[in-house]
Amino acid sequence: EDYYQILGVPRNASQKEIKKAYYQLAKKYHPDTNKDDPKAKEKFSQLAEAYEVLSDEVKRKQYDA
């Protein structure tokens, strides 16, 4: 799945936009606030993985290549 789609940001998003999108979605899908939703944990880990790659310039360049 596309990391940009997961975070809901365009491919040319700035680091600030990526961070903002991640924090909004992380708050929304955090397992502690969605105890009754088994998919929230999965969504949250996808968000974390996408953010880890896109927030790191080197990893992001490799991902975009």
Rank of each mutant, 00 (worst) to 15 (best):
E1C: 12
D2G: 06
D2F: 05
D2L: 04
Y3C: 03
Y3Q: 01
Q5A: 12
L7F: 03
L7H: 01
G8T: 03
G8W: 03
R11C: 09
R11T: 05
R11A: 06
R11N: 07
R11Y: 07
N12A: 08
N12C: 14
A13I: 02
A13R: 00
S14E: 06
E17K: 07
E17P: 01
I18V: 05
I18T: 01
I18W: 01
I18H: 00
K19S: 15
K19I: 14
K19R: 14
K20F: 13
A21M: 08
Y22R: 01
Y22S: 01
Y22K: 01
Y23L: 15
Y23M: 15
Q24K: 12
Q24D: 15
Q24E: 15
L25M: 10
L25Q: 11
L25D: 03
L25F: 04
A26Q: 10
K27M: 12
K28V: 11
Y29I: 09
H30M: 08
P31C: 07
D32C: 07
D32G: 12
T33E: 12
T33L: 13
N34S: 08
N34Y: 03
K35F: 12
K35A: 13
K35V: 11
D37L: 05
D37K: 05
P38S: 10
P38K: 07
K39S: 11
K39V: 15
A40N: 09
A40D: 05
A40Y: 09
K41T: 09
K41W: 14
K41Q: 13
K41E: 10
K41M: 15
K41C: 08
K41N: 08
K43F: 13
K43W: 11
K43N: 05
F44S: 05
Q46A: 13
Q46H: 08
L47R: 02
L47N: 02
L47M: 08
L47Y: 06
A48H: 15
A48K: 13
E49S: 09
E49C: 07
E49R: 11
A50T: 02
Y51I: 04
Y51F: 13
Y51N: 02
E52D: 14
E52R: 07
V53G: 02
V53K: 02
L54H: 00
L54Q: 00
S55H: 05
S55E: 04
D56Y: 02
D56M: 02
D56H: 03
D56S: 04
E57D: 09
E57T: 09
V58M: 10
V58P: 03
V58L: 12
K59H: 04
K59W: 04
R60M: 01
K61H: 09
K61T: 06
Q62C: 09
Q62R: 08
Y63V: 03
D64T: 02
D64F: 01
D64K: 01
A65D: 15
